[in-house]
């Protein structure tokens, strides 16, 4: 067995250490944001916080958790993420299955595939898109967050490539048993594609959680914003020179620590969901279902 050999053990130790070091590098910025969020305002504005809170306080979190707009935006984001992801996954499964067939089984597939890919590359820009959104009466509607991005071509292509890896014997057996394509998709393909579906789900969740531009442009009321849009309006620096604020207002605007707490809390749900989905990335799932 290879993993008992000495060179492999040495490699394994070095490898683990290396990856852990890289992982630490990736945590530091998040850790920094966390440290800022627990610091006193003056220290944060003076750029004095690095990796440990200066003048520890939880004031920022009290403010954030008492901010109804922030909490409301999390709820909007949750709705958008759940509905959007389900819709995206359903559409992607339905489209990826036929597209994963070879041309001899499905003659139109190449035309469809290019029709899909074409939309990934070309777009008409903001103006005509806005007109369409407006004509469909989606402006200021929750559905503007979900419907336009419902078909995610990138994920569909990813899934069709995963589907190609499904053992052909399984499909043939099912077809011989008289199952139709819909049944084959739902009963054979989907159960053995759990790692792929988990991946797709994760990508879709993250996509929806992080999208902000649609909310900003198509929704009127800040209380309808998803979290990412809300955060975007908070973190982007503004050119104060073009505005007429008094210093007291500027002070309210420069809440570095509150912003940090919002960024952290805002990312928390999608960060937590990842370890949860990881259990579907376990080796042998495919084989396990083959044996069933």
């Amino acid at each position: 067995m290879y993993h008992k050999t000495i060179p492999y053990r040495i490699f394994n130790v070095c490898n683990t250490i290396l990856l852990l070091l890289i992982a630490i590098c990736c945590v530091l910025p998040v850790w920094h944001v966390l440290a800022v969020s627990f610091s006193a305002k003056a220290a944060a504005d003076g750029n004095l916080v690095s990796l440990w809170p200066v003048g520890f306080t939880t004031v920022a979190y009290e403010k954030t958790l008492n901010n109804p707009v922030f909490l409301g935006s999390i709820w909007v984001s949750l709705q958008r993420t759940v509905i959007g992801t389900v819709l995206t996954l359903v559409l992607a499964c339905l489209a990826a299955y036929p597209l994963s067939k070879e041309t001899y089984a499905f003659r139109g597939r190449n035309i469809y595939a290019w029709l899909f890919v074409f939309t990934m590359i070309f777009n008409g820009g903001l103006v005509p898109f806005y007109v369409v959104i407006q004509k469909l009466h989606l402006v200021d509607s929750f559905w503007v967050l979900v419907l336009p991005g419902a078909v995610n071509v990138w994920l569909t292509i990813l899934l069709l490539n995963f589907f190609r890896g499904v053992p052909k014997e399984l499909e043939e057996a099912a077809l011989i048993d008289g199952a139709g394509h819909f049944k084959t998709l739902f009963k054979i393909y989907l159960p053995v594609s759990l790692p792929a579906l988990a991946t797709l789900g994760l990508f879709s969740i993250v996509f929806h959680w992080n999208s902000w531009f649609d909310g900003l442009l198509y929704l009127n009321d800040k209380t309808d914003y998803p979290l990412a849009t809300f955060l975007q309006t908070v973190i982007v620096q503004r050119d104060m020179s073009s505005m007429s604020f008094n210093p007291k207002e500027l002070e309210l605007l420069s809440q570095t620590t509150v912003r940090a707490s919002q960024i952290f809390l805002g990312a928390l749900p999608v960060i937590i969901i990842y370890p949860f989905l990881q259990k579907y990335f376990v080796k042998g799932l495919v084989l396990g279902s083959v044996k069933e």
Binding site: A42, A43, D45, G46, L48, P247, K248, L250, S254
Partner: peptide, 14 residues
């Protein structure tokens, strides 16, 4: 001229 209100009012904390 209004900078003593913001942001310089925070200097005294540090």
């Amino acid at each position: 001229y209004w900078m003593s209100g913001w942001p310089l009012s925070d200097t005294a904390t540090n």
